[in-house]
Simulated scan of single mutants.
Amino acid sequence: MIHFDEYGNRDNPTILLLHGAAALDTFCGQYGFAEEYHLIVPHLYGAGKSAGKVYEPEGMKREVLSLVDSLHKDKIGVIGHSLGAQLAVMLVCERPAQFYFAVFLSAWVNPAPKTVKMYSRMAGMMAGLLHWKRLVRFQGKYWHYTKAQADYMAEYSKQMTPQIYRSFFENTLDLRRLPVYSAVDVPMLAICGSGEVKDMKTSLTLLGSNPHCRTMVLSKAGHDFPMRKADKLNPILREFISGVKAEEKKSRTAE
């Protein structure tokens, strides 16, 4: 089974946190939710204990679903960022009945061939940069990681290869090839930052085509807003999750 980190009491409602590409502790600013929830953070391909694995979405999806099954819970929530948000979309499309809410943060689901080609050409250089411990630690500090989190990222990032880095982009989810998404009736929230690229904002519009997915743009925020803007994001997440729980309670009462 895929390796995972765990925070909080297992008796509490579970939230699956799917980190961004090569950034295991993407949700460092949300780990405080463990006071109320049981948090599960799988080590997705290209990060942590899975750092040496090339990202392959179908295989990744199967491993995460096996982890979800092992929890033996009727329903859980899922929050994903960037690559993890793409995976979150795939999960709720595959098994909507297992999720009582889903949040997609900066989910790029509109892969333009030119953009994919550009990032793929940069793979060698970017993989090389991730071998510089000082640079990776500095990045972790910028993202408000603890020293231990930044040191760990610097350690596992040494396994990054051009092939792994390239796989993050070559396997980008294209929502237009996932027609089942339009029928998903899970309460969903999609957010991107106001400072993100046009493709990301187009992706937000595509996600919002499902009437059960609310969308919003976070002001003065870039792609790394879960780490850099946790003070703005966390109240939004709490309000959304509380609203979903209230609607579920109302529905059960009506029955």
Score class of each variant (00 low, 15 high):
Lys114Ser: 11
Val89Asn: 03
Asp74Gln: 15
Thr14Asp: 05
Leu83Asn: 14
Gly77Glu: 04
Pro113Lys: 09
Tyr31Glu: 09
Ser50His: 14
Val54Tyr: 14
Val103Trp: 09
Ala107Leu: 01
Asn12Val: 00
Pro13Met: 00
Glu36Asp: 08
Met90Ile: 07
Glu63His: 14
Glu63Gly: 10
Gly52Leu: 14
Val78Lys: 01
Glu63Val: 04
Tyr45Val: 01
Gly20His: 07
Leu87Phe: 06
Tyr31Met: 08
Leu24Ser: 08
His43Leu: 03
Ala88Tyr: 00
Leu91Gly: 03
Tyr55Ala: 12
Ala23His: 13
Gln98Ile: 15
Val92Lys: 01
Glu35Lys: 08
Gln30Pro: 11
Ser70Cys: 04
Ala112Leu: 12
Glu94Leu: 01
Ala88Gly: 04
Lys61Gly: 15
Val41Trp: 02
Ile15Asn: 05
Lys114Glu: 12
Ser70Ile: 06
Phe101Pro: 00
Val92Asn: 06
Phe99Asp: 03
Lys53Asp: 12
Glu35Arg: 08
Leu17Glu: 08
Thr115Asn: 13
Lys75Met: 13
Val116Gly: 13
Leu65Val: 15
Cys93Phe: 02
Val89Leu: 10
Ala21Pro: 05
Val89Cys: 06
Leu83Ala: 13
Ala102His: 12
Val89Arg: 04
Glu35Thr: 09
Ala102Lys: 14
Asn9Val: 02
Arg62Tyr: 07
Gly29Val: 04
Gly80Tyr: 04
Thr26Gln: 05
Pro111Lys: 02
Ala85Glu: 05
Leu17Ser: 08
Ala85Ser: 10
Lys114Trp: 15
Gly48His: 04
His19Gln: 11
Ala23Glu: 11
Val41Arg: 03
Gln30Trp: 10
Thr115Ile: 15
Leu17Cys: 06
Pro111Thr: 00
Glu36Gln: 07
Leu24Val: 09
Leu87Asp: 05
Leu44Gln: 11
Ala51Ile: 08
Phe104Asn: 06
Gln98Val: 15
Val109Gly: 05
Asn110Trp: 00
Leu24His: 02
Cys28Thr: 12
Ala34Ser: 12
Trp108Gln: 11
Val103Tyr: 08
Ala21His: 07
Phe33Arg: 00
Ile76Pro: 03
Pro42Ile: 06
Arg62Leu: 15
Val103Pro: 03
Gly52Thr: 01
Phe104Trp: 02
Tyr37Arg: 00
Gln86Pro: 11
Cys93Thr: 07
Tyr31Thr: 08
Val68Tyr: 05
Leu65Pro: 08
Pro113His: 05
Gly29Ile: 02
His72Cys: 13
Phe99Met: 05
Thr14Gln: 00
Cys93Arg: 01
Glu63Gln: 15
His81Lys: 14
Gly32Pro: 04
Asn12Gln: 10
Val92Gly: 02
Ala85Lys: 10
Thr26Trp: 00
Gly77Gln: 07
Pro96Trp: 03
Cys28Asp: 08
Asn110Phe: 08
Leu105Thr: 02
Leu67Gln: 06
Lys114Asp: 10
His43Lys: 12
His81Met: 03
Gly8Ala: 02
Leu39Val: 02
Gly48Pro: 09
Leu83Thr: 15
Cys93Ile: 08
Glu35Ser: 10
Glu94Ala: 05
Pro57Trp: 08
His43Glu: 14
Ala85Thr: 04
Glu36Cys: 00
Val89Met: 05
Ser106Cys: 01
Gly46His: 02
Val109Met: 03
Asn110Val: 01
Gly20Pro: 04
Pro96Ser: 03
Glu35Cys: 08
Gly80Cys: 11
Asp69Ala: 14
Val68Cys: 07
Ala47Tyr: 11
Thr26Glu: 03
Gly46Pro: 09
Cys28Gln: 12
Ala47Trp: 13
Glu58Lys: 12
